[in-house]
Amino acid sequence: MARVTLVESINLALNRALADDPDVVLIGEDIGVNGGVFRATQGLQQRYGEWRVQDTPLAEGLIAGMSIGMAAQGLRVVAEIQFMGFMYPALDQIANHMARLRNRTRGRLTCPVVIRMPHGGGIHAPEHHSESLEVLFCHHAGLRVVCPSTPAAAYGLLLAAIRDPDPVIFLEPTRLYRMARQEVLDNGNALPLDRAQILREGDDVTLVTWGAMTHESLQAAQQLAQRKISCEVIDLTSLSPIDHDCILDSVAHTGRLVIVHEAARNAGLGAEIAATVAERALYDLLAPVERVTGYDTVMPYFGLEKAYIPGVDRIVDAVLRTLET
C-alpha cells in the first residue's frame, strides 16, 4: 500500500481503469506527453498509446461533444477539462446531449462518460482557474456529480464513475490535490456512488460540506472540540444526487446544521440542503440553519481569494451562532 496524494490517487485509478478495460479512453488538453497540467494523467500515454490517452484540439465544447459520439459507440470516455472556468462551452453538450441521450432515445443510446474537472480556488492561479460551478451540473437531470475530498475516496469514486453506465461530472478540489497523503490500496475496488461520508462524528452541530472545504470544516471542528463543542462533519461527496438521509439522520441527532461551501451563496447547493431539512426535519432543529459560503461576487483573482473562500473563523462563528439559541 502506498501513501499517495489525491492527484496521485486519480492517476492510480485512471491507470487501473485503462489496464482493466480496453474500452476506456482518456481525452483532454495536454493530457498526453505532458501528463495534464496537474499531472493527473502522468505516464499514461506512454503506457497506453496515443489513441487511448489522447490530446484533443483545444476546444472544450468539442471534448464534451466527441465524448458523446465515442461513448454511444461503447467506449468509456474519461475527459479532462483543464480548469472549471473553461467548461462553459462544454456545458452545452453536457446539458443538451450527454445528460439527455439515454432519456431521449428511451435507453437505446447511452453516455458512459466521466468529465473530470479541477474544482475551486486557493492555488494562486490566473483568472477563470478557480471556479466552483457544481450547481450548474446539479440542476440537470441525467448527470451525477461527485466531489471527493480524500485520496482514497478519489480512487474508489473515480473507478465507480468510470464503470457507471451514465455520465458523471467528477470534481477534483485543486487545493487538496497535493495537500495530504493517505494510504491507498490500488486494488481496483470502487466505492458506492450517491453516498455522503461522515468524516467526524459529533453530537452538537452538523457541518455539511464537500471538496476542499472539508479541510477548513475539519479544522473548525477540531478548534470547537477544544471548547467542548462536538461537531459532526459530513462530506457530501455526491453533490447530485444528494444523500439527504445521511444529513437528516445527523440533524435528528444534533439539532443544528451549518452548511459550508466555497461556491457562491445565491442558489448554491446549500440552499437545496437547507430547504430539504426545512421540509423534512424542521422540528428537529434547535436553531436556524447557517450557511457559510463564497460571496455573491465574481471569484476574485488570487489577491483576494483567501478572503472569498470561507475560512475556519467564519465556520467557527457560524457554529457558535447556532448554539446561541
Binding site: 464534451a64 461533444g65 466527441m66 458523446i68 465515442m70 454511444a72 461503447g74
Partner: peptide, 9 residues
Amino acid sequence: PHAAGAAMA
C-alpha cells in the same frame, strides 16, 4: 462533434 466522436471510436 458526435459524428467526429463516433468516427474516433
